[in-house]
Design a protein around this nucleic acid. Structure first.
Length: 446
DNA sequence: CTGACTTAGAATGCATCGAA
DNA sequence: TTCGATGCATTCTAAGTCAG
């Protein structure tokens, strides 16, 4: 029995601190981790003291006693010096986490009063966890934590810093867009007619696609299948999702589908302990990133793990680590997407989001991942091209005595660029080398 | 891209002051 | 005398810069 339900109060404290930090201009006004840690220690002490007081004499809601403590005690608990405690208390007072500090004289402890919005003391009764859960759930509902109408959003397909929220199937949700029964990915909701330069997606294309049934290789592609062989298809789709993650078009590799079916038909081949390890790891990551500020019930969490198991189940053991890594990156993409506009964006609850049949959930992040990897490769190739050009130019600029053989170096650089397998980059290489006078050295000297 | 280096700001400890 | 408050010096850390 606790008067203060610590985990709930700590969550509220974290939210309060986050809100406070985002609202304060000066970095010096921010509450940082050590101060928050001190605050938590103080709350722990307060909880215990209230419990003791309640045993002696039942507490009344309107007369919750303040915490009587001293810097020495707090310093011991928080493993810091008394000086630090005093500073931290001052900062907590400034931030209104603590509302009052009353000095009771040199031979007495001082009294601390807490912000009641954070502590949520229920007075006479010990805190009923279930009540909190219910309340919290109601609040989450009110805050649009559940899906009502449309399942589509306008999220970008990569973590590039674009704002073209046009043709993206729901992976995470953008609250900024007004919802209707219509799919949000249609052009009606276009906020940016210029489209997504980074991904090469344009509004027109997106609108067109939104009217089409989901295709293989499109964002969130999880082909609709008849219910009877749903599971095997589901697994095969999943596996191709994994195997083809290096931008191989989904469904194009027969081998992959075959392998998926084989794997799905032999679940016993999976090493369940390592599978569970990956499931736990991915779930913990999701909880700490995309569901960091979302209250989740026990059942939702259990269901989430079950669903995540579906994602790993068809994967052969030797591929588990690789696949896990891809899933981690996909979660990271979602986190970045949410972080860009945390007020207006949220993600579906895990019991729905990780459903493999929900093409607008985690399944949809495959397209993000592919585009992300494509962009990464593009950047890498470009850097490689620039490096080769710079290498050649630098040699040209050296004293003749120190220069390497021009032809030899040219061939060497050409070979490297050739290995990128991109005619466009090859052309760029030739153009720049042949027309050295127009070469803007500074452009490549980065 | 990576690692070394620099720098500003925050955290902390020590010494001292001052109020009760 | 005790203990919170305060000034100052040191340490730590994160971000930025630059050269290889």
């Amino acid at each position: 029995m606790n008067i203060i339900h610590f985990s709930t109060v700590f969550k509220r404290l974290d939210q309060f601190v986050k809100h406070h930090n985002s609202n304060s201009d000066k970095l010096s006004n921010h509450l940082r981790q050590p101060i928050v840690a001190t605050a938590k220690e103080i709350i722990k002490i307060y909880g215990l003291s209230l419990l003791k007081a309640h045993k002696i004499k039942p507490l009344e809601v309107d007369h919750i006693p303040p915490l009587e403590t001293n810097s020495e005690q707090l310093a011991k608990m928080a493993h810091v010096s008394t000086r630090t405690i005093r500073r931290h208390i001052q900062r907590l007072l400034d931030a209104k986490v603590l509302t009052e500090k009353v000095y009771k004289g040199r031979k007495a402890n001082y009294q601390l009063r807490f912000n009641s919005n954070i502590l949520l003391i229920s007075g006479l009764k010990p805190v009923n966890k279930d009540e909190f859960l219910e309340d919290d759930q109601k609040k989450k509902t009110a805050d649009n934590q559940f899906f009502k109408n449309s399942l589509r959003t306008t999220c970008p397909q990569s973590d590039s810093s674009n704002n073209s929220y046009i043709n993206n199937i729901i992976i995470a949700v953008d609250n900024k867009i007004k919802r209707s029964s219509l799919a949000l990915t249609t052009h009606y909701f276009s906020g940016n007619k210029t489209g997504n330069k980074f991904t090469g997606y344009v509004e027109k294309e997106g609108a067109k696609r939104s009217n089409e049934p989901p295709l293989k290789g499109t964002p969130g592609a999880q082909k609709n299948v008849p219910k009877d062989d749903k599971i095997s298809k589901k697994y095969s789709s999943n596996l191709s999702d994994l195997q083809n993650s290096v931008v191989e078009k989904e469904g194009q590799s027969k081998q992959v589908i075959k392998q998926a079916k084989d794997t799905a038909s032999m679940p016993e081949t999976c090493c369940f302990s390592s599978l569970n390890l990956y499931v736990d790891s991915l779930w913990n990551l999701s909880k700490e990133t995309i569901y960091k500020n979302t209250f989740l019930t026990k059942n939702q969490q259990l269901r989430a793990k079950e669903l995540l198991r579906d994602w790993y189940a068809p994967v052969s053991e030797q591929n588990l680590a690789k696949v896990h890594n891809i899933y981690v990156q996909r979660i990271e993409l979602v986190r970045k997407y949410l972080a860009k506009d945390s007020k207006n964006r949220y993600v579906q609850l895990p019991d729905r989001y990780f459903d493999v049949t929900n093409k607008y959930g985690f399944t949809g992040t495959k397209a993000w991942y592919e585009i992300h990897m494509k962009a990464k490769r593009k950047t890498r190739d470009k850097l490689m091209l620039h490096a080769q050009i710079r290498r050649f130019i630098n040699n040209e600029e050296k004293d003749t005595s120190k220069q390497l053989s021009r032809l030899q170096l040219f061939k060497d650089c050409e070979k490297r660029v050739e290995s990128l397998n991109s005619p466009e980059l090859m052309d760029q290489f030739y153009a720049t080398i042949l027309n050295k006078t127009s070469f803007n050295h500074s452009q490549y000297n980065t």
